[in-house]
Amino acid sequence: MNQENVCATLTIAAPAEKVFAVLADPTTHSAIDGTGWVQEAVNQAPLTEVGQVFRMDMYHANHPDGDYQVANKVRVLDPPRAISWLTGQDKGDGNLEFGGWFWRYDLAPLGADETEVTLTYDWSAVPPQIREYLQFPPFGPRHLTDSLDHLAELARGLRNR
């Protein structure tokens, strides 16, 4: 497989500002997640600047520890049009290490109350030593569409966190 990213797009019946606000709130990420791996936000402050780090508690049955934590670093923040973050981990010495994959949401207003949202998961910068033990993408094909469906429910106020 030569493709190094996957994308999904959904039109959401909510203004771009509201959709962006949901995405910029780390406390909503567990409700957005289509895998069930994201548990809760360790850092609950809204995302407001490039370079900001926010940590999330995670769970995956195949992870060596089961429960673990990721450190995400905001790489794009262009309200209400785009938001993206790299996913990594704390190396235990105060330094963060990123694996080379990122999440990105692109929002295109289609009017006052409708937004086209494209979710991209990109692993093109993952180094060979990580590709030896992690398969990409690490989730099934429905993950992105499920995540967008959950985002739509949150943005329309139909889903509790």
Rank of each mutant, 00 (worst) to 15 (best):
M1L: 08
N2A: 14
E4W: 05
E4K: 03
V6N: 07
A8Y: 13
T11S: 14
T11W: 08
A13Q: 15
A13N: 14
A13M: 13
A14N: 06
P15R: 15
P15E: 14
E17V: 15
V19W: 09
A21D: 07
V22F: 03
L23R: 02
H29K: 08
A31E: 05
A31K: 03
A31H: 06
D33A: 00
G36F: 01
W37R: 05
V38K: 00
V38S: 00
V38D: 00
Q39C: 06
Q39D: 05
Q39S: 05
A41V: 00
Q44C: 15
A45Y: 08
T48I: 09
T48Y: 09
T48L: 13
G51R: 05
V53P: 08
V53F: 07
R55D: 14
R55H: 08
M56P: 04
Y59C: 00
Y59H: 15
H60F: 10
A61L: 09
N62C: 11
N62E: 14
H63R: 03
H63E: 08
H63P: 00
P64W: 10
D65I: 04
D65T: 15
G66V: 06
D67H: 15
Y68L: 00
Q69D: 05
Q69H: 10
V70E: 10
A71M: 04
A71V: 02
N72H: 07
N72I: 00
N72S: 13
K73T: 04
R75L: 07
V76T: 13
V76N: 11
L77V: 12
D78V: 12
P79Y: 03
A82M: 06
I83W: 11
I83G: 03
T87I: 05
T87K: 03
G88P: 07
K91P: 05
G92R: 11
D93W: 04
F98I: 04
W101Q: 12
F102L: 13
Y105P: 03
Y105G: 01
D106H: 06
D106A: 10
L107K: 08
A108W: 00
A108V: 14
A108D: 07
G111N: 03
A112E: 15
D113N: 15
E116V: 03
V117Q: 01
V117H: 02
T118Q: 08
Y121W: 04
D122Q: 11
D122E: 01
D122T: 01
S124W: 02
S124K: 11
A125T: 06
V126E: 13
P127D: 10
P128D: 15
P128C: 13
Q129R: 12
I130G: 06
R131K: 12
E132G: 04
Q135N: 11
P138C: 07
P138T: 01
F139H: 02
F139T: 01
G140S: 05
R142V: 03
R142N: 12
H143W: 07
D146C: 07
D146G: 08
L148C: 10
L154G: 09
L154W: 06
A155L: 03
G157H: 06
L158G: 07
N160L: 12
